[in-house]
Nucleic acid binder design. Structure first.
Lengths: 191, 191
DNA sequence: CTACTATTAGGACCTAGTCATAGAAATGCG
DNA sequence: CGCATTTCTATGACTAGGTCCTAATAGTAG
């Protein structure tokens, strides 16, 4: 019978925990893992080998690379969502996929400002002018949206004078309307 | 007189370029830098020393750490901005600093949805209920906000019945109002 | 010529690993 | 119980991408 007091976890348990530990702390060295799991460094290395987990430096490189790409993606992103159709000063359509980070952890429903962001940036994009800012917006969230759903936003210019453009944006998930917004956009310079 | 053809750049020029090169490509090794600047590895190391630039691995660690923190901040962030005062179902105040990534690169003005996000999430936070989603919102962006400015959002509950709560949010930069919004928030379950 | 800066070279050491080999300990099973 | 098999540990040789320190050389200015 095995010693109950100092009994080690069986291999597959350790490996599962190892994987998790490294996942939410990629900065940990084999040495630290060895002491924390109370096995030798070599054991940790064998485990990593079997699990296909790269060494600390490679992990850091990966995280850093990700960061680099993401930062670029975020700052380049003048429009939230992917624009799939655009007729300047007429109509525009964009698609945004709702992911885990967009929803409230408590109820799994997308935070309103993400739908707003998609609609607002589409309203900016549709306008054929270098200087555009949102002046007013009147929005309605008619149905909750959940993770993994794809939101299709359709924008239409409904009115225009020398300083203001009115854009109506309606967003759908599977033909069901989830969001409606009227945006009054200011064009040309200064406030 | 110095050789005009294979003349090297003077030290201070190389150092300036080195700094820039490393900044927008932290993944480069001293060796690669040495060949690209056509000097020895040791020279690069001396330069880094003088410029206080850490070695490749430390740079990667820094970038990875940043990333890690940011991701945590984003996913933990149930409220956009920092809540500095909160009386449930009464008033709340949050502060958000506008950074480069919040503004349009073309005109340096903050994208509307960031101000909306701050106000909207404050409207959610102020309500003393587990289930809250935004139903309607009527917002106005009265003055453009620019990078480095700190936006103070003040929320106030103005009406409440068994299903709906109305929250008025007004945001200021240095006492100047930049945003006003009326949010109709739905409480309790289901749509 | 000398003083000085800039550059290069070399060696010892470091970390956090790699890979391969060998031996020890624990466990399963007839 | 003994023996096989799995699992773990130990050891040594090697790597990248550095650190730190010392020393030599090249070029330039006074």
């Amino acid at each position: 019978m095995r010693c109950l007091l100092f009994m080690r976890k069986p291999k597959h348990v350790r490996k599962a925990e190892l994987k998790e530990t490294i996942q939410n702390n990629p900065f940990i060295t084999d040495e630290a893992l060895a002491t924390s799991f109370n096995v030798s460094i070599q054991t940790i290395r064998l485990d990593r080998l079997e699990l296909g987990i790269p060494e600390l430096r490679e992990r850091l490189k990966d995280v850093a690379r990700q960061h680099h790409d993401e930062v670029k993606a975020l700052t380049d992103e003048e429009v939230i969502g992917e624009v799939i159709d655009l007729q300047l000063d007429e109509t525009a359509i964009s698609i945004m996929e709702i992911r885990e980070e967009h929803v409230f952890t408590r109820n799994g429903i997308a935070r309103g400002h993400h739908l707003f962001a998609q609609a607002n940036s589409l309203a900016v994009a549709i306008i054929n002018d270098d200087f555009v800012v949102t002046g007013r917006a009147n929005v309605r969230f008619s149905k909750p949206v959940r993770a993994t759903e794809r939101v299709v936003a359709k924008a239409k210019v409904t009115a225009q004078d020398d300083k203001w453009t009115t854009v109506i944006v309606e967003s759908y998930v599977d033909q069901r309307r989830v969001f409606t917004g009227e945006f009054n956009m200011a064009r040309g310079h200064q406030d």
